[in-house]
């Protein structure tokens, strides 16, 4: 065997291992959802017949429609708001000159380094005084001005051709119209990538919803699943079934947007 062939084989082997490691957790999750808890603990890796039982247990124990609605509402509304506000901010930072621009931006980046746990208590006090504890507003509001997304959009806007804005100004568009009719369509892949990132973050958000949501009927699926895992005798089959359900929305969004996502990552803006 020549060295070139050997190297090729080696590369494939390594990639296969990496692929396996990435995919295995999903595989395990799906298999587990069809098995009983006892089987799972024993390490069974083949499909079992307990899928319907697990489903039944899950739906009896968890008010699934309500819980998923909570998660969905928070994730969707949160994502839409974050995209609007943070992309506008990123666009603004890059497009408009101002003496204080860089200083404000540097301050924002600095704020990124503050751990959430440090802000948790004051945040809670704020919402408590506003009588907004245990509401969707309280969960969504702190997330809409995502500094990371602002940064992301500012970077992406650097690749946006300035002359398009000039041409649009000459064509008579106001700044808002330029943002809506020229910038947005051109930056579609950036928005797609951002949607995936933000949606996943909102859907999986744990700590803040934990603190600010009080009643069972307002909790999100992440909180519920977490509680189920820490029962004294967890029913792993049911748990994994619930996890499969909880993972679906993000998977769906990813597959729908993935073409654009890849474009966005490659930075193909013409």
């Amino acid at each position: 065997m020549t060295w070139a062939v050997f190297r090729r084989a080696l590369v494939y082997v390594l990639l296969s291992i990496a692929a396996f490691v990435s995919v295995f957790p999903f595989f395990w999750m799906i298999i587990g959802a069809t098995n009983t808890s006892a089987d799972i603990i024993r390490g069974k890796t083949s499909i079992g017949g307990a899928l319907l039982t697990n489903a039944a247990t899950f739906f009896t124990q968890v008010d699934a429609p309500r819980i998923f609605f909570n998660s969905a509402f928070i994730a969707i509304v949160g994502t839409v708001l974050t995209l609007i506000i943070s992309s506008l901010a990123g666009y603004g930072f890059e497009m408009f000159r101002s003496r204080f621009r860089e200083r404000i931006f540097a301050l924002l980046l600095l704020l990124l380094s503050i751990p959430f746990a440090a802000m948790m208590v004051p945040l809670f006090v704020m919402f408590s005084q506003a009588k907004l504890v245990n509401t969707y507003v309280a969960v969504i509001a702190p997330t809409v001005a995502s500094i990371f997304i602002i940064f992301y959009f500012r970077q992406a806007t650097k690749a946006f051709p300035r002359e398009l804005r000039d041409a649009a100004r000459i064509d008579g568009l106001s700044e808002w119209q330029i943002f809506l009719y020229v910038y947005l369509p051109v930056m579609r892949s950036t928005y797609a990538a951002a949607t995936i990132i933000v949606f996943m973050a909102n859907w999986n958000n744990y700590l803040w919803p934990l603190i600010v949501l009080q009643t069972a009927d307002n909790k999100t699926i992440t909180l519920i699943l977490s509680a189920l895992t820490s029962a004294y005798t967890p029913d792993y089959g049911m748990l994994l079934f619930g996890t499969v359900l909880a993972t679906l929305p993000t998977l769906v969004i990813f597959f729908v947007l993935q073409r654009r996502f890849v474009e966005g990552m490659l930075g193909a803006v013409k």
Binding site: S128, Q214, A227
Partner: peptide, 26 residues
Amino acid sequence: VDDTASQDDIRAKLQTQLLAGSTEGL
């Protein structure tokens, strides 16, 4: 009876709220 939180969750919430001095929703 609300059992939708883990013990760690309950501790986190108690700690945060008692620290914040806000008993809203406890």
